[in-house]
């Protein structure tokens, strides 16, 4: 699981640099329509503050946009991309919709479950590295089975490819963490 130290570090406020990015996004919308920036800011906040939207993070975003906290909760709970609870370091979102199912997404989901030693979709591996989620059609139906991890799509999945992916992400985590 995420260590206390890590979660402590990943809390509001935004760095000056991120704040500038956020202000830039707000300016994309007409005067008084700043709420339009909400979804994009939530994506950024999630990325910045530990991969999920804590109530604290959401209240902070509400403050930036000068809207009521409930307006943020309503939105954050409506859209499935936002994590409302802490996750593993990497979230595998496997598409489970019809076209992917036709080419074997169920088997891939089962395989990942076994590999991670978890019993249900939504759970995180014991080492806190991977969370398995399912997603609805991600617009890669011709290249299934597929999964999304962060911004990255991984297509034409096979058990071997899943193994390689996990190694790749583990290595990525180790290398970024040994740098600092």
């Amino acid at each position: 699981m995420i260590s206390t130290l890590e979660t402590q570090a990943k809390r509001p406020p935004f760095s000056a640099e991120k704040m500038e990015e956020v202000q830039g996004i707000i300016k994309q919308f007409p005067e008084g329509r700043h709420k339009s920036a909400l979804l994009r800011i939530l994506h950024i906040a999630e990325e910045e503050f530990g991969g999920w939207l804590s109530p604290e993070t959401m209240d902070y975003v509400a403050g930036i946009l000068n809207i009521k906290p409930i307006e943020v909760y309503e939105v954050a709970t409506f859209y499935t991309m936002f994590n409302l609870e802490p996750t593993g370091k990497f979230v595998f979102e496997v598409c489970r919709t019809g076209p992917c199912m036709l080419v074997g997404s169920d088997d891939i989901i089962e395989y990942i479950k076994t590999k991670l030693g978890i019993s249900k979709v939504g759970e995180t591996s014991a080492d806190g590295m991977f969370t398995l989620k399912t997603a609805e059609c991600l617009g890669a139906c011709g290249y299934g089975p597929m999964l999304q991890c962060g911004k990255q799509y991984h297509e034409h999945l096979t058990p071997e490819k899943v193994d390689a992916l996990m190694d790749e992400y583990r290595a990525k985590y180790t290398s970024t963490n040994s740098q600092n």
């Binding site: 009521k68 906290p69 409930i70 307006e71 909760y73 309503e74 709970t77 409506f78």
Partner: peptide, 10 residues
Amino acid sequence: DQRVHGALHR
């Protein structure tokens, strides 16, 4: 002037 409840999830 302070709505604190609303519709959540979908």
